[in-house]
Amino acid sequence: MRSLVDETHYEVLELGREASGEEVERAYRMAQSTYAPESLATYSLLGEDDAAVLRERLELAYEVLSDPASRQRYDEVLDGHDDGGAAQERSLQLPSLESEPPAPEPLRLRAPAALPIEGFTDEEEPDAPYDGARLRRARLARGVEVDQIAEITKVNPSYLHFIEEERFDDLPASVYVRGFVTAYARCLGLDAALAASSYLERLRQHRSEAEETRSWGRG
């Protein structure tokens, strides 16, 4: 157990050597929030100074790994020198001395969608019908808040909440609901056709039952 300061950039971001650019991005953002000032995850264990050191270390790792050219040079250093300490020493330097420092890739604020959190997704039957609760579980497992979906899909967040809570009476005509559920599911990388058809079936059933109750009341 070396301290984080002595680890490779990959180890710092908890990544394998084969990690894609997107995985680097995701790991960096996750680590940033873990070691942010006032973070709940470090509360009472790490002092602000300790966290600041770790944050600097993260920045360095991200700088190197997020740029394909500097990452390749870094990989060469890791591969070429198996002489322990010396390679370690060098690995902490930005290997950009002999060439132009690469312009840092701008951090794209990509949709959080399609970035499922490892481990917790796809634990439910893939072909099972979607209800509001299953949609919510899929959203949470992907680390996405309702407001983020609303921002991407431009669907009013209240409707998204109503969909999850199955407040069918508060939802608009089914043609709109179909559009909302499809957008919601796409945003999370779910089977949008299945989600929309199974959810609409629930909506239809509820509305026809409600209709029946009303006509009974009249009769």
């Binding site: 984080l4 996750m30 709940l40 995850a41 790490l46 770790l54 917790f120 497992a141 996405v144 808040e145």
Partner: peptide, 20 residues
């Protein structure tokens, strides 16, 4: 919230960086 679910991953990271 989804953010609170991520706390598990963050605590796991801290376990690694602090305790190994």
């Amino acid at each position: 919230t989804a953010e609170e679910i991520k706390l598990g991953f963050s605590v796991r990271s801290v376990c690694r960086s602090y305790f190994g």
